[in-house]
Nucleic acid binder design. Structure first.
Lengths: 166, 166
DNA sequence: AAATATTTTCAATTTTTTTTGAAAGTTTAA
DNA sequence: TTAAACTTTCAAAAAAAATTGAAAATATTT
């Protein structure tokens, strides 16, 4: 398999994985392209390589920057903006966990807390409250653990965790 | 807030969360409905409550059973099938992790392994290979850890993990 | 074996999400 | 200040995903 073919396959793999995780296919492909690119790429280069429109390219690049895993790079003597992906995969992973925790996990915890205020005058909400409690139990623990994962150094975390397995 | 209102809000919350995780909105709502229901529900009851068609209800119930988090319950003297959701949230969590690991993580690891076979005769694939290695590093570790999580008892795992935080 | 109840399937439709592309906006250079 | 280079926006179009509903299949009862 030639290098370019492998890169292409990687972009496809990343793209098709995306939709199972609620991530825009094109966004994942732009990310993959930047990951395998040895040099920063301009919007035009991304458009040409992935055969997508300018609007689409722009939108997804911006979204990736919002996730904190792609950044702008300015080239001297060039007016265009260039983009690079953070190549430190552990960092990318941490960044995504951090964002999803903030965007999705925390709101859901707040929402469950809210639902615990249900009127239980005659005790009819007992089962419901038990469900909310067990959900809260799992989600808050996940929250704490993900926070730990995000803040820690990879090697420290992994060595600790791998010890647990034995 | 009345109990029924709270249940409805819970179903909505669960449903809207779903799409960020690549899960069908209705499937999440059916799941939520079964979670908050104190009794097993028939397809007809699910249709009526969520205002969805028979085909849709059937499809999503079946999908939930495929994920191993909803099961059929037969009532004596009733010809209809009834459905119940596993109320043990830790179990539900484990089951979902287990399935996603099998359906998504393992194939992606296999795919990256495949891409490592790229032709590197003249050394031009060095950076690409380094990227594949670091991806493999993170994904295989995640794989091992999730496997641990899935196989372990909640309390054991949690007590161990919480110790790490201190 | 026929009638009835129930579940499943799937082509057609609807809804939602993504993408396009051109116009508007912004920045830089002459 | 004007023009050119470049980026952003967003309404319309296209594509993808979800949903419907009725017909077919299956299961149960009489």
């Amino acid at each position: 398999m030639k290098l370019n073919e492998a890169k292409e396959k990687f972009i496809q793999t990343w793209g098709s994985l995306a939709s199972s995780w609620g991530i825009n296919r094109t966004m994942a492909m732009v990310h993959a392209l930047l990951l395998v690119s040895e040099t920063p790429l301009s919007t035009d280069e991304i458009m040409e390589t992935l055969l997508i429109s300018r609007g689409n390219a722009n939108m997804n690049i911006r979204e990736l920057m919002g996730w904190g895993i792609v950044r702008k790079e300015l080239k001297m003597g060039e007016r265009k903006e260039f983009f690079v992906a953070d190549k430190d995969i552990w960092n990318v992973f941490k960044q995504i966990v951090k964002e999803r925790r903030k965007r999705e996990l925390e709101p859901v915890i707040a929402s469950i807390e809210e639902l615990k205020k249900v009127d239980n005058g005659n005790g009819e909400a007992g089962e419901f409250l038990a469900l909310m409690d067990s959900l809260l139990h799992v989600t808050t623990k996940a929250n704490v653990l993900l926070d730990l994962a995000v803040k820690s150094d990879e090697n420290w975390l992994m060595s600790k965790l791998l010890k647990l397995i034995k």
